[in-house]
């Protein structure tokens, strides 16, 4: 996954639900020096009871902000990790091409 163009990532998931798995594993795809290189990473563990009370709340959400300001919010409950990576890379590749042409 291309993580160079990510400015911030907020990952919230319910650990006890299968739907939360994708968001949780997405958190493990960020590189080890993500925080050191200025990316803002926030991981939120959703409360089991509270999520059950608010019934339609998704089990996993990935909220990303790219360096060009574009925001991406994905409900990952029914997505696979590969799907999420594809969504993120689609915009990152565009940014990479633009950077390459500019400099």
């Amino acid at each position: 996954m291309i993580t160079r163009y990510l400015a911030s990532a907020k990952i919230s998931f319910d650990p006890f639900s299968r739907g939360g798995k994708t968001a949780r594993i997405f958190a493990a795809l960020l590189p080890p020096d993500a925080r050191a290189t200025g990316m803002k990473v926030a991981t939120v563990v959703l409360d089991r009871q509270r999520r059950a009370a608010a019934a339609p709340a998704p089990a996993g959400v990935v909220e990303l902000v790219f360096k060009d300001g574009r925001e991406l919010r994905l409900d990952t409950t029914r997505m696979s990790v590969a799907d999420v990576v594809e969504e993120v890379d689609r915009h990152s590749r565009g940014l990479a091409r633009r950077e390459e042409l500019a400099g």
């Binding site: 650990p15 006890f16 299968r18 939360g20 798995k21 949780r24 594993i25 493990a28």
Partner: peptide, 10 residues
């Protein structure tokens, strides 16, 4: 098992 979904990933 309630803990089963947890043991995927690192």
């Amino acid at each position: 098992h309630p803990l089963a979904p947890l043991f995927a990933g690192p």
